[in-house]
Simulated assay, not measured.
Amino acid sequence: MTELFDMPSDLQHSYLGLVALHLREALIPVLAGLLVALPVAQLCVRVRWLYPPLLWVTTVLYAIPSLAFFVVLIDYTGLSETTVMIPLAVYSLVVLVPAIVDGVRSVPQETLAAATAMGFGPLRRYVQVQLPIAAPAIIAGLRVASVSSISLVSVGMLIGNEGALGNLLNSGLSYNQPRLVWLSVVGTAVLAVLVDALLVVLRLLVTPWMPRGNRKNTRTRAVKEAAR
């Protein structure tokens, strides 16, 4: 069994080390994208004309092939993890900004009016009322962004061996070892499934007001929860 997970010496990591590296390179950009998307999305909600051009810009950036993005960044960040993570953070904005905007816009106006009447300022209303109600949409966006990021990390194998489990795929093809190829492909798929499952659990934890079966009255329960 141990022979199955023996790694070539040029990878400089154990299999678990590659898994940890893969998660770091995939999830840090998503977290960075979320931190940028939250204020940007709120700005788009408040200034409605800003949303279409911003969405167009992020979509154009998403259309740039990841390898081309890496090549452009190499002159500035070198053959490093940063070169892989910056494009992934940019790509996550394409998913996260619309998810947050749609979620925040779905908050009933009467709920916002009630929060304002209770003395909530714009920031407090956004953090304590709008974001909790928008949580299902936001986490849905996080699920898509995270799975996409996990799959794209492997492309980093083409720029200085920075693809984590993708490096294992490259080694398997170079050394003609199908074992390494399968470890890379299956490992990446399992990581994506596990991260997605964890985000589903997170949604269940942060939205206890959402019914598990019958989804009627979901918005009513959300409003009551936010008003507490």
Rank of each mutant, 00 (worst) to 15 (best):
D196R: 08
A135T: 10
I139G: 07
A20H: 09
D75C: 02
S92L: 01
P8M: 06
A41G: 06
V147A: 15
D10S: 13
V129Y: 10
D10V: 12
P52L: 09
M85R: 11
V186L: 15
P53D: 09
A68I: 08
A145D: 03
L142H: 05
L11F: 01
M7D: 06
Q130A: 12
T111A: 10
R24T: 14
I138M: 13
V90K: 00
I138P: 03
R124C: 02
P8V: 06
A37I: 02
V185M: 11
P136G: 05
L158A: 11
L168P: 00
L43K: 01
I74M: 10
L194Y: 12
N217A: 14
G163S: 01
V95F: 12
L204N: 14
V190Y: 07
L183Q: 14
N217F: 13
M118H: 06
L67Y: 09
L88R: 12
V57M: 12
I86F: 00
W49F: 14
L96Q: 00
F70N: 04
S80Q: 04
H13K: 12
L169V: 02
L67M: 07
P29A: 07
I139F: 09
A227F: 12
P98W: 02
D10W: 11
L50P: 02
W182L: 15
T116G: 04
C44T: 08
W209R: 04
S149V: 06
T220D: 13
A197R: 14
A26S: 15
T59R: 09
L199Q: 00
T218L: 13
R24A: 13
T220C: 00
L61I: 01
Y91M: 07
S9Y: 09
A113H: 05
S149R: 04
R179I: 08
A134M: 07
R46G: 00
P132F: 03
V144S: 12
L50G: 03
L204H: 13
T218Y: 12
P29D: 04
V129I: 15
V97W: 06
L198I: 05
F69T: 04
G156W: 06
A145E: 04
T77E: 02
V223W: 05
V57E: 05
